[in-house]
């Protein structure tokens, strides 16, 4: 039995109700034709074992973030189910935590407060101790009292990571965590992530635009295609950790994934062109 399994049979937002349904009347009043909401996801299954690191790659706007929200229990408007360790996930909880695309720090809390926000009821001293430890670990001890508005992108990401790991979750979902970071900061954060992933045995699901990052970090890379969202191909990364970034196998695999995605993009473009006539 797999540890984390998401089975999405179908996802389609309910249609907006129209007051005027009759097509003849709509034509008479010059109303636009009724648009059906598109099927976003159909027949998609994602599985992960404990300790797995998996990456979801694919072009923007195909629903990767929605998929992540489904895994987190934040989105329930779909047919299917998400299972974690044999239990159905129907709402969000601290078992599955998320590092949001924009980090989602609470602007009215300082660095310390943002990290402590994730701690479940504990006495004051333990909270303070845990927070200080983690702030040291992510190297922000000089910024404990700073508000998010003064933090750089990399610092904000580090706070978001620290918040996700102060009470380590069973599954960590990351939505583009390395977006808009310089190479050095990015590498530092990736090392941090691997270090965190190793210790409390958290399962990690990562959405990424960078195929190189995805291949470097993951055990499996899942290439996705859109409308409706489906799996193009799964790539296994067998190289043992610690890995070297410039490893030839990794580079080749990244090229392979990219070729697959490019072929799909070309095919879709052709379809669109054909549909236009």
């Amino acid at each position: 039995m797999t540890y984390l399994k998401a089975e999405i049979k179908k996802m389609q937002y309910p249609d907006t109700p129209y007051i005027v349904q009759n097509p003849t009347l709509r034509k008479f009043f010059r109303l636009p034709p009724i648009k059906k909401n598109p099927v976003l996801i159909e027949g998609l299954t994602i599985e992960a074992e404990k300790e797995d690191v998996i990456s979801l790659v694919g072009p923007s706007g195909i629903g990767k973030s929605t998929l992540l929200r489904i895994l987190a229990g934040l989105e329930t408007r779909f047919v299917g189910n998400v299972n974690l360790g044999g239990e159905a996930i129907t709402n969000s909880s601290r078992r599955i935590q998320v590092v949001f695309q924009d980090n989602c720090l609470l602007p009215w809390l300082d660095v310390e407060g943002n990290i402590a926000f994730a701690i479940k009821d504990e006495d004051h001293t333990t909270r303070a101790q845990k927070t200080t430890d983690l702030i040291d670990k992510v190297g922000l001890s000089k910024k404990t009292k700073d508000f998010p508005k003064t933090l750089s992108g990399g610092e904000a990401s580090r706070v978001a990571f620290a918040r996700a790991f102060i009470d380590p979750p069973e599954v960590l979902l990351l939505d583009e965590p390395f977006r808009a970071l310089d190479t050095i900061t990015k590498k530092g954060l990736q090392d941090l992530l691997m270090q965190f992933a190793d210790e409390p045995n958290t399962t990690i699901v990562l959405v990424s635009h960078s195929i190189d990052d995805a291949v470097f970090l993951s055990d499996r890379v899942i290439a996705l295609a859109g409308s409706p969202l489906r799996i193009l191909e799964e790539f296994k990364v067998t190289l043992a950790r610690p890995r070297e970034r410039k490893n030839r196998d990794l580079v080749e695999l990244a090229l392979e994934v990219e070729a697959k995605l490019r072929a799909e993009a070309n095919r879709q473009n052709k379809d669109v062109a054909a549909a236009r006539g």
């Binding site: 709402n91 969000s92 609470l106 926000f117």
Partner: peptide
């Protein structure tokens, strides 16, 4: 709405 989702995640 992210803030409310965050609050929901942290129960």
């Amino acid at each position: 709405s992210d803030y409310f989702e965050l609050a929901a995640i942290y129960e």
